Simulated assay, not measured.
Amino acid sequence: MSDSNEANAPAKKKAGKTKKILVLLLGLIVVGGGGFAGGLYAMGLGPFHRGGEAAEEDPNMPHLVVRDGVSEATAAVARERARHGRVDPRVFKATYVPLEGNFTSNLRGGDAFLQVGIGVSTYYDEHVVENLHTHDMAVRSAILLVLSQQDPVAVTTLQGKEALREELKNAINNALTIREGFGGIDDVYFTSFVTQ
């Protein structure tokens, strides 16, 4: 029996090496394929790319509004940057929308209150404005929730007001995104601001 074990030893060694080589080759193919697909995506090519001219755009989703006189080439570059969160106000036109009425809320702790008038801006088309009006109740509720959590001292400072604007923008965008799949609000403005 020992002779047959010795005869099978080189065959087993060879089979083990073959398995290792196959596993290594498979790993290289997977890593290389992933790198190739990532390269295509980064260049704006391939089936996974959502931008570019080849990608079909959903007409029901908001689109950036290009200012008059801006070339299509400039707009295309600016659209790509906007996909990464950098909207260029020199390329895209802002629409300002005042929210009806004032918002009044007790501040955190209950002894003080805040009353603000709010307007928003968007660089996107009428879809965002329509969504804002359609979901007015949800947006107003989100705003009031944010206001009620504010510190009475902090909202009297410039830094506190700027932080509040950012919180309100995020709350409005979140309310719209939950209901429509897209926020589109780029900034929030105070049209009146009273604390007591």
Rank of each mutant, 00 (worst) to 15 (best):
M1Q: 15
M1A: 15
S4Y: 11
E6I: 12
A7I: 06
A7H: 08
A7W: 05
N8D: 10
K12S: 04
K13V: 03
K19V: 08
K20H: 09
L24Q: 07
L24Y: 07
L25C: 14
I29H: 02
G33K: 07
G34S: 12
G38I: 08
L40C: 01
L40Y: 00
L40E: 01
L45Y: 15
L45F: 12
F48Y: 12
G51K: 10
A55F: 06
P59K: 10
M61P: 04
V65K: 02
R67E: 03
D68M: 02
S71F: 04
S71R: 07
E72T: 00
E72F: 03
V77E: 08
A78D: 02
R79N: 02
E80I: 03
E80R: 07
E80C: 01
R81M: 07
G85L: 02
G85H: 11
P89C: 11
P89D: 12
V91H: 04
K93F: 05
T95N: 08
T95M: 01
T95D: 02
V97G: 03
P98C: 11
P98H: 13
P98G: 10
P98Q: 15
G101A: 15
F103W: 13
T104I: 14
S105G: 14
N106E: 11
N106A: 09
L107M: 15
L107R: 05
G109F: 11
G109P: 01
G110Y: 06
Q115W: 02
V116A: 04
I118Y: 01
S121A: 08
Y123E: 05
Y124I: 03
E126V: 13
H127W: 06
E130K: 15
H133T: 09
H133N: 15
A138K: 14
V139W: 00
R140S: 09
R140H: 13
R140K: 15
S141N: 13
A142R: 01
L145E: 14
L147Q: 08
S148H: 13
Q149N: 13
D151E: 11
A154L: 13
T156F: 10
E162C: 05
A163D: 12
L164Q: 08
R165H: 08
E166M: 12
E167K: 15
K169R: 15
N173A: 01
N174E: 11
L176D: 00
I178M: 06
R179F: 01
R179L: 10
E180Y: 02
G181Q: 03
G184N: 00
G184Y: 01
I185A: 02
T191D: 03
T191Q: 04
T195D: 05
Q196V: 09
